[in-house]
Simulated scan of single mutants.
Amino acid sequence: MHDHPDRRSGQLDTRRACAVDLLDHVVLAILCSTLLYSVPFPQPSWLHRTEVTSTTEIDVTATIRTPRVSVCMPVYNALPLIESTIESVLAQTFTDFEILIRDDGSIDGTREWLEERYGGDPRFRLRYNSQNYDVGGQYNLLFHEARGDYILKLDADDIILPNLLARLVAQAERLDADFVGAAYEWLDMTDGSQRRPASQEELMDGLLEDAARAILIDNPYSLCFSIWRRSLLPAIERDGQYVLHTETCDWEAQLRMALAGARFATVTDVLGLYRLHGHNRSSRPQRQLRSVVRDTLPYWFERLELAVGKATLGDFIKRLLAQYLRGLVRGRSALDREILIAFARLLGRRPRRPDRCIDGMWRRDLIVPPSGYDSPFSQRS
Rank of each mutant, 00 (worst) to 15 (best):
D3S: 07
L12P: 03
D13Q: 08
L22W: 10
A29P: 04
I30T: 14
T34P: 07
L35G: 13
S38H: 10
L47D: 00
H48A: 12
E51T: 07
E51A: 02
V52E: 11
S54D: 15
S54T: 12
I58D: 15
I64V: 14
R65I: 02
P74L: 09
V75N: 02
N77H: 05
A78M: 12
I82R: 00
E83P: 00
S84N: 12
E87Q: 03
V89L: 07
F94N: 07
E98D: 10
E98V: 01
I99Q: 05
G105R: 02
G109Q: 06
W113C: 01
Y118S: 02
Y118N: 01
G119Q: 13
G120S: 13
R123F: 04
R127I: 10
Y133A: 09
G136Y: 04
G137T: 01
Y139G: 00
L142A: 07
A146N: 01
R147A: 15
L154H: 03
D155T: 00
A156M: 03
P162S: 07
N163W: 06
L165A: 09
A166P: 00
R167D: 15
V169H: 07
Q171N: 01
A172Q: 11
R174D: 15
R174G: 13
A177P: 07
M189D: 14
E201D: 12
E202S: 13
E202W: 04
L203F: 04
G206F: 09
R213T: 13
I215G: 09
I217R: 09
L223S: 10
C224W: 02
C224N: 10
S226I: 03
I227Q: 05
W228D: 04
R230W: 06
L232Q: 04
D239P: 01
D239L: 03
V243E: 12
L244M: 09
T246M: 00
T246Q: 08
R256T: 13
L259E: 03
L259C: 06
D269M: 00
L271I: 09
L273R: 11
H277V: 14
H279G: 15
S291G: 13
R294K: 05
A307C: 01
G309N: 12
K310S: 13
A311M: 08
L313N: 11
G314P: 03
F316H: 09
F316C: 02
A322I: 08
A322N: 10
A322P: 04
Q323D: 11
G327P: 06
G327Q: 03
V329N: 10
G331C: 07
A334F: 14
I339P: 06
I339L: 02
A344Y: 11
R345D: 14
R345G: 15
L346C: 14
G348A: 05
R352K: 09
R353E: 15
P354N: 04
I358A: 00
D359V: 03
R363A: 15
D374M: 00
